[in-house]
Simulated assay, not measured.
Amino acid sequence: MSLVGEERKGIILDLINNAGKVRTNDLVDRLQVSSETIRRYLEELEEENRLKRVYGGAVKMTLEREELPHLKREVLRADEKKRIGRVAAGLVQDHDVIVIDDGSTSLQMIPYLIYKKNLTIITNSIPGLNLLIDYQNKEIFAGDIFFVGGRVDSRHYRISGSIAEQIMQNFYVNKAFISIDGMLPVQGITSYDADRAMLARKFMQNSKESIVLTDSSKIGNSTLYKIADLNEIDRIICEQPVPREWADLMNKHDLEWIAAD
């Protein structure tokens, strides 16, 4: 590569080290080159283990394999999560029985559900439960609430584990809304936490329809524990359109991708 190319790659690495993430469109404007050139730089840097490409850009390489605490996750990409939550809530019909998992994205559905009629909501999210109880006490939510009990994960404000799975075994729902930590074509949808992955899988197994809620930072990532294959999902809601290279895969699995723009 020319010296100019190496200098540009150095600028990309400086930006990603400072911000933790770069976007292809921003790099095009910053470096005044085409998006194809930027993608080539990112591919070369990924081959050198200097960064990790994700949908729309790249993120800093890290050995971190742990999920961020709930209080940190809920403020990350908050606007995108609200848009996803609003679109997800629009799929809920009066009289539906739904399960909402503990994800910070799924939590954003709840404010948009308050005027639905005769809903039954099942959740393992402690903040989600508190919000629903608050809405009931204010008489702006009149549905039924079921809390999936089990082992308390205080760092993530959720319930998981074998007891929670056994409790969920007794429920059957119309729609399961699932948040994820990573998604790739071969690996499917994944989670940082084994117990969370197992409970999410149980939610999906006991639902007529499985709907994944994810912001675009999770696309192209793979975390440690598998939740399900893509062919086990019915819909994906993301703030970005389906990646061009994923379109054929979506058609193959008859999987609907909804852009929450």
Rank of each mutant, 00 (worst) to 15 (best):
A228E: 00
G20P: 00
D181A: 15
P69Q: 09
G220Y: 07
S34H: 06
L230V: 03
G20V: 05
W246T: 01
N18D: 14
I12F: 03
N17I: 06
K208S: 13
E139M: 04
N18V: 01
L51G: 12
E209N: 05
R30T: 10
I178E: 13
N25D: 11
G188L: 04
D193T: 14
H70V: 09
Q136D: 12
L129S: 02
R155F: 09
E256Y: 06
K52Y: 10
I11G: 08
A58P: 07
F141H: 11
F147P: 02
S104Q: 07
L129T: 02
G85L: 06
L68Y: 04
S191V: 08
L3C: 07
T190P: 07
I227Q: 02
D29I: 05
N118Q: 13
P111A: 13
L91E: 09
V33N: 09
I133K: 15
E47F: 09
V54S: 07
T24Y: 04
A58Y: 05
S106Q: 11
R73Q: 14
K82C: 03
E36K: 11
N221W: 06
E165K: 15
L224K: 13
E80H: 13
N130T: 04
D193G: 11
G149A: 14
S106L: 02
E232N: 01
M109R: 01
E66G: 14
V33K: 08
Y135Q: 07
L249M: 10
S216P: 00
R65G: 12
Y225C: 08
T105S: 14
T214V: 12
A142N: 09
S160P: 00
K208M: 12
R23W: 08
I180W: 14
N49K: 06
K60Q: 12
D215C: 02
S222C: 14
E139R: 12
I12V: 07
L31T: 04
E36F: 11
S191Y: 05
I100W: 02
D96F: 01
K21S: 15
S191R: 05
R8S: 08
G5T: 09
I237M: 00
M168L: 10
L230W: 05
I140A: 05
I110E: 03
T105R: 12
L42G: 00
D215L: 00
E80I: 05
I100A: 01
M204S: 10
V97G: 09
K202Q: 13
E239C: 03
Y172M: 06
K252I: 05
N137Y: 07
Y157K: 15
K72D: 08
V152C: 03
M109C: 04
F141G: 10
M168P: 04
N206K: 12
G57L: 08
L45W: 00
D79T: 14
Y192E: 02
L199F: 03
R235W: 02
D102V: 04
Y55K: 13
L107Y: 15
Q169L: 04
F141Q: 04
Y172G: 02
I121S: 06
Y135P: 02
L27H: 04
K226D: 08
E245H: 14
E7Y: 05
L91D: 02
E80N: 10
L51F: 10
I211C: 00
V148W: 03
R158V: 08
R73A: 11
L129I: 02
G182S: 13
D195P: 01
N206R: 06
D26I: 13
R196L: 04
N25P: 01
